[in-house]
Write a protein that binds this DNA or RNA. Structure first.
Lengths: 214, 214
DNA sequence: TAGATTGTTAATCGATTAACAATC
DNA sequence: TAGATTGTTAATCGATTAACAATC
């Protein structure tokens, strides 16, 4: 199996995002130098990263934008629409549910769940909030592959467990806790308060920047 | 100036989060081994990281939780309440505005702005949406230090520019674009669709996990 | 004292950068 | 052909891990 270093893999979606912008602007070719400049990285790194999965550049010419976009989409998994379930219909969950950026990038939230009985049956746009008792059945019936957790910290681990049990293998976690999941299940975590704390540390310490300034 | 490696700085808020949980549970002492296990890292790394800013551990005993929480708060900048302005009162902006996790961690959103005239004057909880024309004045008048950008991609750079001009030195950016800012300004970026793409890549490639599983 | 765990040094590992031959 | 830019190798840099003396 093709092995891609973690930091490289984390940059792939950013390359794709930039390349899609070039494509939309009608740019046909881009050099590693230009792409690197746009992303705040070096030409050498761009070439090294892109070389992980083939020879798409043309020496003396650059990278054909359209073809590279296509290849990157395939590599990243954007060649297929992912089916997503969201658990937690609080403020954040409802906003995520309505967020158009997900569908644009091929992630469709097909079902929303909450354990609060007063929320069940209510609507978020066209979607109806369902009870957790229907979770496993819905995941299987709707062929859902990814889960988003937007519940309070204390409930997140239990929700993750239910997701795994229902067959979900990828989880995006917004709850401020570290989740424990079995091997073979991938968790991406976004803790909004942690991001702000990285900012505040960076300002206090006077360090230039921190992790991904994207 | 004390220099902290970037990956270490990115872990500080996670240490603090875990230590606050220990504190809430009434745990007085914790070893690097225990803390590492909780965070999915090694005891050696915990010791090395914490040693960046002093000698808080007691050899043969462990780390005093309460004292370490206090120190970490000071280091990270959680000893002071940060004053935040949010621009963009769409779905995401409204959810962020209502998100209680920010205030709990010492980040207070004092003002919300939007350029859409139909939104101005409306309320998000107790906050009134203000026009961008008042931005600079409000930032100065309210002593705002941090900005959150929750506007569409095409408007984000212009908003960042206004923030910098108004004196803001730390920006949390939710728009899916890379922002260009002058030296001395820190940007943290959260692109929700990028996170999902890292998940989908990880699933497709069969790689164990990706960036921070927190 | 004996047992445990820290802080730190040295060794390993991995990622980034620089350089350049190969290629268009 | 001359100029440009890739893909790749080697050199550098930085982060993680392992080991252990110092300390409680």
């Amino acid at each position: 199996m093709l092995v891609v270093p973690k930091p490289v893999a984390a940059r792939f979606p950013l390359y794709l995002r930039q390349l899609e912008e070039y494509e939309a602007d009608g740019v046909a070719l881009v050099s590693s130098r230009e792409l690197g400049a746009k992303l705040g990285t070096s030409a050498a790194q761009v070439r090294k990263d892109l070389a992980c999965f083939g020879h798409f550049g043309l020496p003396g010419v650059g990278y054909p934008v359209k073809e590279l976009v296509e290849q990157l989409k395939r590599i990243i998994g954007r060649d297929h629409r992912w089916r997503v379930a969201l658990v937690g219909a609080g403020n954040l969950g409802r906003a995520l549910c309505r967020y158009k950026g997900f569908l644009e990038k091929g992630f469709e939230i097909l079902a929303v769940f909450d354990k609060d009985r007063s929320k069940i049956g209510k609507h978020i746009g066209p979607k109806t909030i369902r009870p957790m008792s229907e979770f496993a059945r819905t995941v299987r019936g709707e062929h859902i592959e990814l889960g988003v957790i937007a519940v309070p910290a204390r409930e997140a681990q239990a929700v993750a467990k239910q997701m795994v049990k229902a067959g979900i293998r990828g989880i995006l976690n917004f709850a401020p806790v570290r989740l424990t999941v079995p091997e073979g299940v991938t968790v991406c975590a976004v803790d909004l308060a942690v991001e702000l704390q990285q900012l505040s540390f960076s300002l206090k310490s006077g360090e230039p920047a921190l992790p991904a300034a994207n």
